[in-house]
């Protein structure tokens, strides 16, 4: 079970990911999206989910039991090639329902000066 003290805490991302045109194009192509000038709206998940995974695994949750419950994106501006984004992760809530642990994590994708995209993922760790 997740340490309840972690809920509400933000862990700042320590490394920035430089977004390449190749990464945006491959992601867009895999979704049949023709616009590759900026990233598709769901692209932020490629950064935020990995960051959430590291944090939650380090907190003792078993990633092999995880199911994605829901997902939300708030896009201040589209991600473009050349962006260097770090991801600050906040565990917004954690509760147990019928033995399953349901955790909502927010990922804030930031440049040095700007919030670009926020992602909210609800992850269900099955009992």
């Amino acid at each position: 079970m997740l340490n309840p003290d972690l809920v509400g805490r933000t862990v700042a991302g320590t490394t920035a990911t430089k977004i390449s045109q190749e990464a945006i194009s491959a992601f867009a192509r895999s979704l049949g999206e023709k616009n590759t000038e900026s990233a598709p709206p769901t692209f932020g998940i490629t950064i935020s989910l990995e960051q959430s995974q590291s944090l939650l695994q380090a907190s003792g949750l078993d990633w092999s039991r995880v199911v994605h419950g829901d997902q939300r994106f708030d896009i201040k501006r589209p991600i473009v090639a050349g962006d260097e984004l770090r991801c600050d992760v906040t565990i917004e809530s954690a509760r147990i329902v019928a033995g399953n642990e349901i955790v909502t994590v927010r990922g804030d994708l930031m440049t040095d000066s700007e919030l670009v995209v926020s992602t909210w993922s609800t992850l269900v760790f099955r009992a």
Partner: peptide, 9 residues
């Protein structure tokens, strides 16, 4: 796609 501001499911 750049016009999409919020998206959830």
């Amino acid at each position: 796609s750049e016009k999409i501001k919020e998206f959830s499911a």
